[in-house]
Design a protein around this nucleic acid. Sequence first.
DNA 1: TTGTAAGCGTTATCAA
DNA 2: TTGATAACGCTTACAA
Lengths: 338, 338
Amino acid sequence: MQKKITIYDVAKRAKVAISTVSRVLNKSPYVSDSTRKKVLKAIEELDFRPQLSARKLASKEPQILGIVVPSFTTPFFNEVLKGVKDEIHKLDLDIIIYNTGSNNPRQGFINFLDRGTADALIIFSVSIDEEINRRLKNSGIPVVLVGSEHKEYNYIDFNNYRGGYLAGKHLAEQGFNNIGMISPAIVSRATTDRENGFRAALDEYGLPVDEDLFLIGETTKHSGLSEEAGFEAIYQYNQLGTWPDAIFCSNDTMAIGALNALSRLDMKVPDDIAIIGYDNIKFSKYINLSTVDQMMYDIGAKATLRLGEILNKQAKEPMHIITEPVLIKRDSTRNVKK
Amino acid sequence: MQKKITIYDVAKRAKVAISTVSRVLNKSPYVSDSTRKKVLKAIEELDFRPQLSARKLASKEPQILGIVVPSFTTPFFNEVLKGVKDEIHKLDLDIIIYNTGSNNPRQGFINFLDRGTADALIIFSVSIDEEINRRLKNSGIPVVLVGSEHKEYNYIDFNNYRGGYLAGKHLAEQGFNNIGMISPAIVSRATTDRENGFRAALDEYGLPVDEDLFLIGETTKHSGLSEEAGFEAIYQYNQLGTWPDAIFCSNDTMAIGALNALSRLDMKVPDDIAIIGYDNIKFSKYINLSTVDQMMYDIGAKATLRLGEILNKQAKEPMHIITEPVLIKRDSTRNVKK
DNA sequence: TTGTAAGCGTTATCAA
DNA sequence: TTGATAACGCTTACAA
């Protein structure tokens, strides 16, 4: 465990002052080519890398982009990250990912904010309430929201109504006519929109909407959007004894839970229930991956680009983007009615 | 954008010295109850939180646990994280997640190390070569490896041979007898083990191993373990014109790609090909979620616990754990031969 | 038990 | 174009 190398080591080796090393590090134009070369050489030889915390402490410049996610379950998060990374080196920021997690997500998030770790933020699926808004404003750091809306902020949101509509339309066109839905115990703008869009589609296709088949999960964990919720709902169906032939879940995770529950039920269950889940981001089971990958990549890139504009004071009005959902059928549908 | 509050503000408000505030912050016993109370009150009122970077700079104490992952695609990463979080408050560390990503993962990882951001590390699925080993040792920070092995380090690895074996056994017992496999273009210990175990199982069940059906993906991206690889392999089968009735993929992601490719092929493809994919972590499509969740949770918790022991100098020998894979069939298997 | 002051590794200001 | 040197916000001897 050798001692850490610092700019002092570099300065000594290059026979210059530490301030000069710092200038080289920060690409200051006020360094002669010859000394720059010397310093670069020393850096190279010593394999030196400036310490982030020292930098952050000393500098007014932004150093760290924080990406806030409630969970990593979405397989597209990688794509978002790629988009961010491809865009970020222009800004020369480090990335740190903050997971709000399940227990006490709000408080954890607020702590994270107040610790001042991030100098810019991309926030996924966290709705901005009064307190968070205050602290965010207060911190003065640039923010882009993804998957939520707030007029004072930049955001890239999804058209949930349209998404729900597409799900309904799809099921209708597949020939299902006894369709149910599982919604979360906690109502939110996003899931309500999904449900409304979904109902509208069924309506449009002249399908009956049997309220008995529209269930609400019991758990309030994860805003009611957990595997558990899907699980519970299936047991509710089972108890009721009335089964739909297709179920639309408010989100992806619920759908997984529902599938799981179905496979565990000992009792007789109609074998051809189709289950699809909506996500902020996708319809699992129906989506064409490459399309969504592209979409998510773009979101990451666009959000980062925007942060760059804000940091460079080039941005005026907040940017508001609504992304239209894509629904492309693919054959991994669990069961398609013939 | 009001100015940040610091210990100076707290000190002033509580009418004490900043060192006293610091002591309170660090739970030093050398503070009288009365002043502690005053300070705590001031902290509360000002809503003060110490800045991580300043802390890190000033203190010899570890502050940040870094979790290194190549990707977030595994839905179980959340579980790991839960395990970590539940264990970590005892250590009072912050978590930062570092994603090695796809392009130039090595260099990025090394940078990350050298910037000295993390004071302890849990490293997922990154094999420790000479250089990384050197830097890791050199940094002197405690490390736990997950999903890879190295005798000098603490690790929690998976029995890949056994996993491959279970996959083979499962397919054999399902009645498939014309079984293929897709392996990555880049060989690694883990995937070789999987393949060997798989072959051993087929052998044990007296099934023919048709080498024509054992394909290797073309792409070398993501160590050859990408959707693309699965995609390509399916096209290879198509070109060859010989189709297996079941395919085992070296990992999960490849399986997704394979499924995707199947659904896109215009030409006739046997409709009852079963596809399963292995992951470091799970058998997608076959696993019982709650079991694996538990397993991953445990891994997170155990790794963190271990780091704590090292930080407290209670650890002697490196801990080496091999986790046995679990294979629980569930009905979401794509196609099960009748 | 508390306060003073010297770091920690950078950046930023001011002279030179 | 360079070099001293004062911050940055916190921890930690050392004194009191």
